[in-house]
Amino acid sequence: MSQPQLRQEFSRRAEAVSAVVKTVESLEDAFAQAARLTREQGGACLAAPGWEPGELAALQAACEREGLELITQGLRERAGQFHTGLTRAQWGVAETGTIVVDSASEDLRLATMLAEMHVAVLPAANLRADLFALEDEVNRTLGRAPGYLAFISGPSRTGDIELVLTLGAHGPRQLHILLLEESS
């Protein structure tokens, strides 16, 4: 599959499982969108573990613009208080609309599990056709113990009451994937 085909298939599949996929031109753009979404939904706090110190300044600025508190660690103590978890995703899988998130860090796990909304920034260049095309990368990650690797396809869901599909059973109620088209 060509890059545009991968992107198209990934978006189609991710949206089929109730994720929202958007393209962003830069990290700044991604941060701005995450902060704006949080404010629009009435959130007051954004949890963003795992970002480089150099990237955090732009995120801090975006949060300030929207009047949000930014937290990057100690998420366990803040359970229930952050609306958004903003993380990176390492890879994307077109066949299933899946994002692959290295979640070895506890804070990163908590951000993707306890938030009402998970926003993941995924470099478009890291899309692959299917899971088998990622086998080597995943194997390398599993070999770096201890580790916690997550394949995430859409927001948390259940059909346990009369098979009625309901989103947000335990994890985030929404998943936004920001496909990063960086020229650099």
Partner: peptide
């Protein structure tokens, strides 16, 4: 269920970071 993949597939290797356990 006919899903192409389940929402969460989680791979755990070893004793991961856990603040509640005082480390691991």
């Amino acid at each position: 269920t006919g899903q192409l993949i389940s929402t969460y597939v989680t791979w755990i290797t070893g004793a991961v970071e856990c603040a509640a356990a005082g480390g691991r």
